[in-house]
Amino acid sequence: MNSFPSDECVIVVCNAPDAETAGRIAEALVGERLAACVNILAPCRSVYLWQGAVERSEEVPLLIKTRRDAYPRLEARLQALHPYEVPEIVAWPLVMGLPSYLTWVSDSVVSSGEAG
């Protein structure tokens, strides 16, 4: 691990269609050690353009904490678990954070080259 654990960590944002789906996704990602933690937030209203029409729906946001090197596997698994044809899956790098928290995130996630 380098001296700046934030360099290794990212937050992935994904909206689920309902609380049941959000819970199923969160349990799978943490259980498979692709994420250290998934926050399931309160439902929100989304307005978006889909196939030429303005759509409105209620969705449940997920904040997924993981490592940068685990992101490709997390993205593939999230896409497989998600019911949407094109789910929102975006990652933001963590610039700063409590070092002990970021170390915990890093230590909790297993990348493809590590034993679980």
Rank of each mutant, 00 (worst) to 15 (best):
L102F: 14
E75Q: 12
L94C: 10
Y71F: 15
L102T: 12
P87C: 06
V90W: 07
Y71A: 00
R67F: 08
L81V: 10
E88F: 06
M96W: 14
Y71K: 00
L102C: 11
A91Y: 05
Y84M: 03
P72N: 02
Y84N: 04
H82R: 01
K65T: 00
P93K: 12
A76E: 15
V86W: 06
T103S: 14
E85C: 11
V86Q: 10
P83Q: 11
G97R: 11
S100Y: 04
L78A: 05
W92Y: 15
D69W: 00
P93V: 01
L102Q: 09
R73E: 07
R73L: 11
P93L: 02
V86P: 03
A91R: 04
V105H: 13
A70L: 00
P99M: 07
R73P: 00
A76M: 13
P87G: 05
E75V: 02
V90H: 02
T103V: 07
E85A: 10
A80N: 04
R73I: 00
L102W: 15
Y71H: 02
P72A: 03
V95W: 12
P87N: 05
L78K: 04
V105G: 07
R68W: 00
R73K: 08
A80P: 05
R67C: 04
E85V: 09
L74Y: 02
W104I: 04
L102N: 12
K65F: 05
Q79D: 10
K65P: 00
H82N: 09
